[in-house]
């Protein structure tokens, strides 16, 4: 049996690296006596595959993993046992049984949303927002494999939304991830700094979602299940 789960990684766990998260999940599966399937080979491992890597320093509202079980299990029971074995800052929100023909999360997720929480910036955020969207190019120093090169984020930013009128303000970027253009959160942060937002006013950054973009639609990996 294959299942897909949506989970929240709370701010308490934002400094975990991807491997740490894998260990945490693996150990929770063992503590919860979940009938996980094991790979064959010299060093058998649990058949768990995580979605895109949550960067160190960020927490996540809607993350995903796929898990293969060695036998069928009631999904409610799975969630209950995982709730008992996971730390309170990591919560499985929903899960679905999936078919083996569904592409992996890594292959299908191609968009993400990042939220920057800002404390009363000195500039007019509405004006800043309008100007940013009007620009034809948004160059920043690349942070990934092509470190040092200038990277234009414009094509990879699908939309920028101001989420709340109250303070603190929230700016949400919907961006492309993976190939051909991977927009990283730290590159977005640099964009903010380059366009007048002060570093000290950025209170928090988190990933609000992972998506499968089809045409103009942003589908969640759970919607792809259905």
């Amino acid at each position: 049996m294959l299942l897909r789960a949506k989970y929240r990684v709370g701010p308490e766990l934002k400094f975990l690296a991807n491997l740490d998260m894998m260990h945490l999940m693996n150990r929770a599966l063992r503590r919860g006596n979940i009938p996980y399937a094991l790979s064959a080979g010299f060093n058998p491992h649990i058949k768990l595959s995580m979605g895109t890597v949550l960067p160190v320093g960020l927490w996540g509202e809607q993350e995903y993993f796929d898990l293969e079980l060695s036998r069928a299990m009631d999904l409610g029971e799975f969630m209950l046992r995982m709730k008992e074995s996971l730390p309170p800052w990591l919560e499985i929100k929903q899960c679905w049984e999936i078919g083996s023909d569904l592409p992996s999360l890594m292959k299908s997720i191609n968009a993400a949303a990042y939220v920057f929480v800002l404390q009363a910036p000195a500039l007019n955020l509405d004006q800043w927002h309008a100007e940013l969207l009007a620009r034809e190019s948004l160059p920043v120093a690349s942070r990934g494999k092509k470190k040092g090169l200038v990277k234009d984020l414009r094509k990879g930013i699908y939309k920028i939304e101001l989420l709340e009128d109250d303070i603190p303000k929230k700016v949400e970027f919907w961006v492309s991830v993976g190939e051909p253009l991977n927009v990283r959160y730290d590159e977005l942060e640099e964009l903010l700094l380059d366009t007048g937002i002060e570093k000290k006013t950025i209170l928090d950054v988190y990933r609000s979602g992972n998506y499968v973009m089809q045409g103009q639609d942003f589908l969640t990996p759970s919607e792809k299940v259905k």
């Binding site: 701010p11 308490e12 934002k14 945490l24």
Partner: peptide, 21 residues
Amino acid sequence: LFRDILPQVAKPARYTGNEVN
């Protein structure tokens, strides 16, 4: 620590506590 200090250092999970058990 969580907002200003730990983002500046390598392997910040060394300094956060709150582990399982």
